[in-house]
Nucleic acid binder design. Structure first.
Lengths: 167, 167
DNA sequence: ACCCGGTCCTTCAAGCCTAAAATAATTGCA
DNA sequence: TGCAATTATTTTAGGCTTGAAGGACCGGGT
């Protein structure tokens, strides 16, 4: 049964995954390259600023390091370095709240807010240009499918763990 | 026109992009984690081995550093380091062909081939488990949409460059 | 024979990223 | 109160990644 139904499905899944990956990489590479050329900055830095801005709009003026790490889906230690560099550049500021001195809260400085506001519209323009080849209907379908996939990823993990790896 | 038709489309495109990105990251994180736990290796190393194996099956016994860099879509310098580490571990070997001594050709060692063959079936199993929440029809639709998106990404780049950034 | 533009690869500096260990502050509970 | 478990963050060691600069090599034209 080296080439049964299951093997074929698996090969298809891998092919699909590789296509998704290469597409994502291409988009990301484009955004990185534009950010570097137009604003002399990097994607992780942009992500931090965008996340802080988003929090601000929600009413949360500042985020803790941990909250930032969760939202960006990167490790704690990574956030430490990123925020350090952004602070050195004067784009964010850190404060230690008196009620819990383990914490570190981060917020945008006015310079950081200004820098981000300059980048956001261009960022949207790049992204929407790259997605322009898809109709509104196709984009909606893609949105749904990826949402379903996201759910499936979590479920797949649990199942494989419960069952004990490969059968 | 701060909130006209275009802005809304753009926001949608960004939302879609963020969903695609977070889904891809989740899948990649899972694969990285499994590779580390089960085989004590990393995704880039796996990618190099898989690419060399693929080339082997196509009849090309070995790849040059440049060809490897193109296929993996990473920089030249990056490949140098990756191959160095894999060579240190005895999984690949490098040779300098006599007819063009600028080049460096890389091939799997028997140990490398053995290591990869152990990983491949599990890798497929992880991926197909993560995609199992989608029906065959949905997977096919996703495959097509992502293919179309991939085309659109290239087209979007060209257009933005020609038109000169954001209008 | 010599040079010169191009190709192939490596080196370099800097930043990104992770997992695991260490540090520091808080909380709960005996 | 005292102290163990928990929570929040930083540190550490190692690897990944890039863009740019540099060095070796090839081929063709003079």
């Amino acid at each position: 049964m080296t080439n049964g139904r299951q093997s074929i499905d698996r090969r298809d899944a891998v092919r699909l995954w590789l296509r998704v990956l290469s597409c994502t990489n291409a988009i990301e590479a484009r955004i990185r390259s534009e950010l570097r050329q137009r604003f002399d900055t990097t994607l992780p830095r942009f992500d931090v600023l965008a996340q802080l801005d988003h929090a601000e709009r929600e009413g949360t003026g500042a985020l803790t390091m941990g909250e930032l790490s969760r939202r960006l889906m990167v490790s704690n230690g990574n956030v430490t370095g990123l925020v350090e560099r952004l602070e050195r550049e004067g784009l964010v500021s850190r404060t230690r709240p008196a009620n819990d001195r383990r914490r570190q809260t981060v917020r945008l400085t006015s310079g950081g807010r200004r820098a981000l506001r300059a980048m956001l519209p261009e960022h949207s323009a790049w992204v929407s240009a790259m997605f322009a080849g898809l109709s509104a209907k196709e984009r909606a379908r893609l949105y749904d499918l990826v949402g379903k996939l996201k759910g499936s990823v979590g479920a797949g993990r649990r199942e494989t763990i419960e069952r004990g790896a490969i059968e």
